[in-house]
């Protein structure tokens, strides 16, 4: 699994890719969000935090597999 970070989430974590082994306990999107917020408490202050799995927004109950590309999506601000 590959975990990518963008925008303010990248700044909070201080890197653009996370070590997936630190998130091996997370079986689904909701658990991954929880672990991320525990590791990086600053992330709890964001107005929203979405997760994409293989380039698609994913709900909390979406299962994560080893080959997945996961992205941490802080509030978007295009336009």
């Amino acid at each position: 699994m590959k975990i990518l970070l963008f925008g303010i989430a990248k700044e909070i974590a201080g890197k653009s890719v996370l070590d997936a082994s630190e998130f091996s306990e997370a079986k689904n999107v909701g658990e991954l969000k929880k672990v991320f917020k525990e590791r990086y408490p600053e992330a709890s202050k964001l107005s929203s935090l979405a997760i994409a799995v293989n380039e698609e927004y994913a709900e909390d109950d979406h299962k994560i597999s080893t080959g997945d590309e996961v992205a941490i999506i802080p509030p978007v601000s295009g336009g």
Binding site: G7, V76, S77, G78
Partner: peptide
């Protein structure tokens, strides 16, 4: 603006840099 994963950082005259979070 609601959905596409793009992020904007503002650079102000007073040298602050801020990631914009609301839309």
């Amino acid at each position: 603006k609601e959905r596409v994963p793009i992020w904007k950082k503002e650079f102000f005259e007073n040298t602050d840099e801020v990631w914009v979070t609301p839309h």
